[in-house]
Amino acid sequence: MKIFVLAEHRDGKLNRATWEVIVAGQHLAAHLKGSVSAVLLGRDIRGLAEELAAKRLHEVLVVEDERLAEYTPDGYTAALIEVIRQEAPAFVLMSHTYQARDFAPKLAAALGKALISDCLGYRVDDGTVIYTRPIFQGKIHADVRFADDPPYLVTFQAGAFRADEIEAASEPVPIRAIPIDLSPVPIRTRPLEVFREAKQAVDLSSAERIVAVGRGIKSEENLALIRQLAEALNAEIGASRPVCDSGWLPMDRQIGSSGQTVSPKLYLAIGISGAIQHVVGMKGSRTIVAINKDPEAPIFDIADYGIVGDLFEIVPALIKALKQLRE
């Protein structure tokens, strides 16, 4: 049984999430007595192929083409359709990155197959692989399986597997080029420059303490309360996406998949429900405190200390208690 893992890269560097998915593949191969190979698409990617070949894989499959020099959904889909046709893998595993989200559903549709996306893990039950994925922003989980024939396309959420569990190869595994002629493929989207909006004025990644605020704060005026708390704690202020979308705090305060990734000693999540997009950016924090009125909020799943209640009552009391501590 062939298990393929698609390696993702940008600017000559492999995405860290690729290692996690290789770990997923290595686990799955052990369960199903299969082999794992990495698939790498691009141009001038020999170095990346060699990096992959140092891991315990069956082989590294490489498609090099001018038309894959930059990522496009048309180019990637056409190349992968051909890889899948020639090699007939049973599984194609990917990370649920923004890039995979851009082409993997297209690939699945072009193949007439299902894609099970954003998986947190899997188990093998009587020979059937059952995937667990979050629904309702992570409040609930769902068990899902394929109801169709292979190839099975799966994306795993960042952090679902631990990159440091990757098994290395005792000697480099073979690298094999797959010849594919992409010249007849129309590439309809034209990728232009990649850029950062503004210089990241605030680097939250080195903050020791962060007070993060979410939708629960209700209005911009109420942020004064959060500023007082941050001051009392000597903490930086962070926010979940909706707060930045509303323009209440600048985008460089945003924590989560589209913002910064942080791992402070103390993370106070105030009025943040804990949608996955936020959690991936802060779950590495050492001590997490959550204040939320909804006892079912997923933020409590990762909190060390939870307070179910009205933040407009709790936070002023907390500011007072912290001031007393100082005095």
């Binding site: 992570g138 989980h141 769902a142 068990d143 109801a147 169709d148 060390d304 179910v308 209640g309």
Partner: peptide, 27 residues
Amino acid sequence: KQELMRVFFPTKAKRTEFLEGTPEEIA
């Protein structure tokens, strides 16, 4: 092409200690 078998509330990754009482006591 994919079958939703069951849904469930996730088991916690961490043991959360919930603090209760008046706001002052909690703080």
